[in-house]
Structure formats: C-alpha cells, structure tokens
Amino acid sequence: MSPTSTARADARSRSVSWEVLGLPLALLVLAVFFALRAPHFAEVTNLSNVARQGAVLALIGIAQTVVILGAGIDLSVGSVIALSSVLMATGLQHGNAVVGAGMALGAGLLVGLVNGLIIGLTRVTPFIVTLGMLSIVSGLALTITNGDPIFELADSSFFQLGTGYVGPVPIPVVLAAVAFAAVWFLLYRTRFGTHVYAIGGNEQAATLAGIAVARTKVLVYMLSGCFAALGGIILTARVHSGQPLLGQGLELSSVATVVIGGTSLFGGRGRLVGTLFGVALVGIVQNGLDLLGVSTFIQRIVIGAATIGAVLLTVLREGGRQP
C-alpha cells in the first residue's frame, strides 16, 4: 500500500472512530449530565418535545448532508422555510391545505432548481449563490405578507402534522424518519449517491468518469429545497400561522449538525447517520441549557463553539487542508 493510500485509510479510521464512538459517547455524557442537573430533562414528555423540535432540523440536516457531501452548501434553506410557511398559510386562508402544500413544495423545488442550475453550470461558488438566494427568498416572503404574520387560520386536520402523534411518536419525528430512510437509500443503494460522493471527492475526476455533474448538482439542491419546504409546512402546522421570518438561523444550525456529525466540509466523506447524532446533540444541549435557565444567547455561543471545534477536527483529519 502506498503512503498516500495509508494516509487516506488512517483518515477514514479516525473519522469512523469519531462518528461511531466519539459522538455517541459525547451524546451519552451530555444526556447523563442534564438528567442529573436539569429538572424534568429525563421525563418522557420533555424528551418527546425535544424530538418534535429536532425533527425539522433533522429534515434540513439530512438534505444539507447530501449537499455538503457533494462539496456544496445551501444557505437558502432558512428563507425557503419562511416562504413555504407563508404560501402554506395562504392556501389555508382560502380553505385548501392541498393547494397551500403544493405551492410551498413547488417554491422549494424551484429555489433548489435555480440554485442547482447556477452552481452546476457556472463557476460561482455555492456559498455565494445560496447566500444571495437567502436574501432573495427572504425578501419575497416579507413582500408577500408585507412583513406581517398570517394569523386566524381556520381549524383543520392539517395542524395535526405539527402537533399530532402516531401512537406515542410525534408526527414530525415519523416524517423525519421516513425522510432519513429515503435519503439513506438514495446515498447508499443508488448511482445517485455514488455520483454525489464522487463529485465531492474530486469533481474533475467525476467529470472524466462520465458523471453528469451539473445534473447531479441540480438534483441535490432540489432535494434540499424540497426538504426545507417540507420543514416550513411542518412548522406552520405547529405554530398555527404563516411566519415570514420562520426558519431564521436554521441554515447555520443545519450546517452545524452536519459538521458535528463528522461530514467533511471538503465533500466526499461522511455518513448520514452522523448528522442524526449531530441533531440529537444540538437538541439536547439547547433543551438542557433551557431547563438550567441559560439564556438563548449563551446557547448560540455554545453551538457556535462546537461547530468551530468540529471544523477544526475535520481539518486535522484532512491533514491540515483548508476548505
């Protein structure tokens, strides 16, 4: 085995050790700590609430994982959530939840399509494209509502999507589990997943191998837009209103969960299950600190520090390279 191959094998070994051993152990330590120190943390009701709150972040994080595996990033997901919430609420105002959901999902797919086309067909970096799209879509959501939330929605069974249960399990958690299973299948049982990993590992080599790079990127960003729109629909059902500012900060939180979960920002390396651990870690920390009376401002500092630490760990695993 060549020195290069040995180095890559060592890097993979360190990655697996963190994702399979280190992250679950950190999660267990945090859970035990908060169970002992934070009142009501270990109660079933609270844990169910943590799962419900984390379901939307899981949805966004799952799609963000696919984007980052392909050496991209999607910063527009938070604004897509806001736009889909507004469109969903507009449909509900007119008494048609199906039309509202169709508009919301259509908007998410359209945003993803535009992102994917620009990124796939030009040399503009994903960071710039999706940052610009964040501003455009956020402005559109605010323009539609004139900056005001949409309240007074008629009672509908639609709201069970955000607040209901399937047995003892919150419906958003069920939807996140189905989404995880579907994306896991795409990544590890289809050519699409192989192409995503190949593009993230070496885009030039993927092109030479005959992979349709631009088409794959379009599909990746459409998946991200669709999942963000679904997240917006679920949150609308939960808050019983259309919120043009809903989803703010989720774009950064989703990246944090992916990076904490061990996926490389360089692309081409990472595991989908690691993102679920990242979502669980972020959810437990936020909930535990809430119960301890720690302000949300401090919580943001903690999550930000954890994200930077995870990126530094990634750089060390990659031999000191910078993204």
Rank of each mutant, 00 (worst) to 15 (best):
171 I>H: 09
46 N>H: 02
206 A>R: 04
82 A>N: 11
306 A>F: 10
259 V>L: 11
95 G>D: 12
103 M>F: 14
206 A>D: 07
154 A>M: 03
293 G>W: 15
211 I>N: 01
62 I>R: 02
267 G>L: 06
23 L>A: 04
70 G>H: 00
8 R>I: 15
112 G>C: 03
261 G>C: 02
265 L>P: 04
284 I>Q: 03
27 L>G: 01
43 E>T: 15
304 G>Q: 04
281 L>I: 07
73 I>V: 14
180 F>I: 04
232 G>F: 00
247 G>L: 08
53 Q>W: 07
125 T>A: 12
182 A>G: 10
235 L>Q: 10
158 F>Y: 13
292 L>D: 09
237 A>C: 11
128 I>R: 04
137 V>P: 00
204 Q>V: 09
269 R>H: 08
53 Q>R: 11
220 V>N: 08
76 S>Q: 03
245 L>T: 14
88 M>E: 11
1 M>A: 10
171 I>F: 13
47 L>W: 00
171 I>L: 13
130 T>G: 08
143 T>Q: 14
151 F>Q: 15
164 G>K: 15
132 G>D: 09
219 L>V: 13
208 L>R: 14
140 L>R: 06
194 T>I: 14
102 G>A: 15
111 V>Y: 02
81 I>L: 15
91 G>N: 10
316 L>H: 10
284 I>C: 10
132 G>A: 09
219 L>I: 11
258 V>H: 08
55 A>N: 08
245 L>G: 15
310 A>G: 10
7 A>E: 14
75 L>R: 01
141 A>Y: 02
19 E>L: 03
123 R>D: 12
253 S>V: 07
264 S>Y: 06
163 T>K: 15
192 F>D: 00
100 G>W: 04
246 L>M: 09
93 Q>W: 02
256 A>L: 06
293 G>H: 14
129 V>L: 00
157 S>W: 14
20 V>R: 11
200 G>S: 07
97 A>P: 07
28 L>S: 03
290 D>A: 12
102 G>H: 13
117 L>K: 04
274 G>Q: 07
166 V>E: 05
34 F>H: 02
84 S>G: 09
134 L>A: 07
38 A>C: 04
181 A>W: 13
254 S>N: 06
246 L>V: 01
126 P>R: 12
298 I>R: 03
172 P>A: 06
286 Q>W: 00
5 S>R: 13
34 F>E: 05
165 Y>H: 15
240 H>F: 15
198 A>T: 01
205 A>T: 11
323 P>M: 09
108 G>S: 08
303 I>R: 00
184 W>T: 01
130 T>Q: 05
260 I>S: 13
17 S>L: 15
68 I>T: 08
280 A>N: 03
109 L>N: 03
9 A>W: 07
309 G>I: 04
282 V>H: 03
65 T>V: 06
231 G>K: 06
11 A>E: 11
46 N>W: 01
118 I>S: 12
117 L>F: 06
64 Q>I: 01
82 A>W: 04
308 I>Q: 02
3 P>F: 02
62 I>Y: 09
272 L>D: 00
215 R>H: 07
123 R>G: 05
126 P>M: 08
133 M>Y: 12
143 T>D: 13
82 A>Q: 08
22 G>W: 07
59 L>C: 05
215 R>V: 10
106 G>C: 05
133 M>H: 07
91 G>T: 07
262 G>A: 10
118 I>Y: 13
135 S>W: 09
230 L>I: 14
65 T>C: 12
